[in-house]
Design a protein around this nucleic acid. Sequence first.
DNA 1: GTCTATAAAGCGATAGAC
DNA 2: GTCTATCGCTTTATAGAC
Lengths: 181, 181
Amino acid sequence: MTDRARLLPQLGEVFRAHGYEGASLALISQATALGKGSLYHFFPGGKQQMAAEVLAEIDAWFEHNIFAPLRDDDDPARAIAAMLKGVDSYFRSGNRVCLVGVIALGHARDIFADAVNGYFARWQDALVSALRRTGQSPAMARKRSEDALLTIQGALVLARARDDAAIFTRALADLKARLLA
Amino acid sequence: MTDRARLLPQLGEVFRAHGYEGASLALISQATALGKGSLYHFFPGGKQQMAAEVLAEIDAWFEHNIFAPLRDDDDPARAIAAMLKGVDSYFRSGNRVCLVGVIALGHARDIFADAVNGYFARWQDALVSALRRTGQSPAMARKRSEDALLTIQGALVLARARDDAAIFTRALADLKARLLA
DNA sequence: GTCTATAAAGCGATAGAC
DNA sequence: GTCTATCGCTTTATAGAC
């Protein structure tokens, strides 16, 4: 179990860099310094199980570090600020791509549809909860939370497309102002 | 040449659906109802040439239907409205993914970096031109054009992730209000 | 738990008949 | 211009030694 915990982040980076279909076992074997035999020992379900567990771990990280504070923090504005700080850190200020977004755009979405949809659904619900507690109407909270998720994803795409991570940093700064307006 | 013109949109849909690495020649052969021999007759450079020509055709479509009007229309507000209408139509109201964005997120970005960057760069420049002519400051025009591109890409990602095309429609409506505010 | 060897299928690409 | 056959390589996955 502890070996697996060290493995998942490495797998995540391979899937991030090459996508689900592009992440070959040869690349994974190289990135983890583990033979195929060992990989199948940990993940009898092969590549699909690897990706599923990586997605689950990402989901758990966001649940603990972002979603839960958004839902539970006594100071919702602080939780929102912490979300943006956490997001900036997680995505390395625009230099790291969102694996859930990558999978959503590819053909692998069909396999991981529930995980992909659930991740964004729970993020949005948690953010709606925080925005509501700052006194915003349900409609406004819903609209702004959708704007937030979409802005983060779009900024990551554009930053990578233009090879300019500053796009992501600017987008997060603007987003903060819009969310708390 | 005329055969190639009928081929490129079919190739585009395969790359859209499966990404660059996921689009195998078998899939392409099936989608075009053409054997590998014929495909290599049209594209001696193989898959890479196919994707490059698809990207070039997409670029040409946007150049003609979106970028040029943004730069040249006497009524910039009309050109911006036409851009949003054209974008909604091109992306099938959120049911069609952006191939340039898909490639930008994947490992194939390394090969097509210039095409990907140029597409977004010229789009932004054209939109800046239109916004400037509506009387907005250079800084404001630049910021809002970046917001526009990022919103469109993010809305496409989120719409597909949540399997809800209405997200894209809502995002375009909001964007229109923001651009012309 | 890790490795090598190997199987079976699929990959991009080419050759050559028609 | 289109096809089939084929090459050489890579793919996922399994088997079995250690």
